[in-house]
């Protein structure tokens, strides 16, 4: 894991464009830049689920795409498939499916998952073939690069890069610390 001296911050603030779980006015927002084919992100996936259960309504979780296409040949299409599912209102269902089936991310698998989730699978295939969601994935990627994402997963807590461990207890502690600071600050 790499660290750097300067504090890196999100250059693209969390907004309407993002896929978010949890209340919009939660005191803490956790942003993950991830890659569906990255084994470390696969390991972070259940940790994030547990964190969401632990923090409940005080946490908003946002996922942005950072596919490392050269290392992970399926990562780009997997990211586009999640966005395509999002266009049909089921981003998180596809997001979960992709991490749970990280070992099977061929195009045919992606189409199959779309069918399983009750999506319009032929439409998803067309959009994958046409690269309809590629610009959005690229925008996520670019925002990560300019925000100091050096690898995946990279987390940001209220806009500031979290350079420490992302094991469950360490990440929960960092989030609770930020929540306490936010609560102590008047006018927020």
């Amino acid at each position: 894991m790499s660290r750097r001296a300067a504090t890196a911050a999100l250059t693209l603030p969390v907004g309407e464009r993002d896929h978010a779980q949890g209340p919009g006015d939660a005191p803490v927002t956790l942003v993950e830049y991830g890659d569906y084919e990255c084994p470390h992100c696969g390991r972070a996936y259940p940790i994030v689920k547990q964190i969401r259960q632990r923090l409940g309504r005080s946490l908003r979780f946002v996922f942005r795409n950072f596919p490392l296409r050269e290392s992970h040949p399926h990562a780009q299409h997997a990211a586009e498939a999640a966005e395509a599912a999002g266009a049909q209102g089921k981003f998180w269902e596809m997001h979960d499916r992709l991490f749970e089936r990280q070992f099977a991310l061929d195009d045919d698998d992606l189409i199959e998952y779309a069918g399983d989730l009750g999506l319009d699978a032929p439409r998803l295939r067309r959009e994958l073939d046409a690269g309809s969601h590629a610009p959005r994935v690229r925008e996520d990627f670019r925002s990560g690069v300019t925000s100091g994402v050096n690898g995946t997963p990279t987390f940001f807590i209220n806009g500031v890069r979290h350079d420490g461990s992302w094991e469950l207890e360490a990440l929960v502690a960092a989030l609770e610390r930020t929540a306490a600071e936010a609560a102590a600050r008047p006018g927020r």
Binding site: S2, R4, A5, A8, T11, V145, N150
Partner: peptide, 12 residues
């Protein structure tokens, strides 16, 4: 620092 990936944000 030698063990730190400097990333690409500074370059961009």
């Amino acid at each position: 620092p030698i063990d730190v990936n400097p990333g690409a944000d500074g370059i961009l």
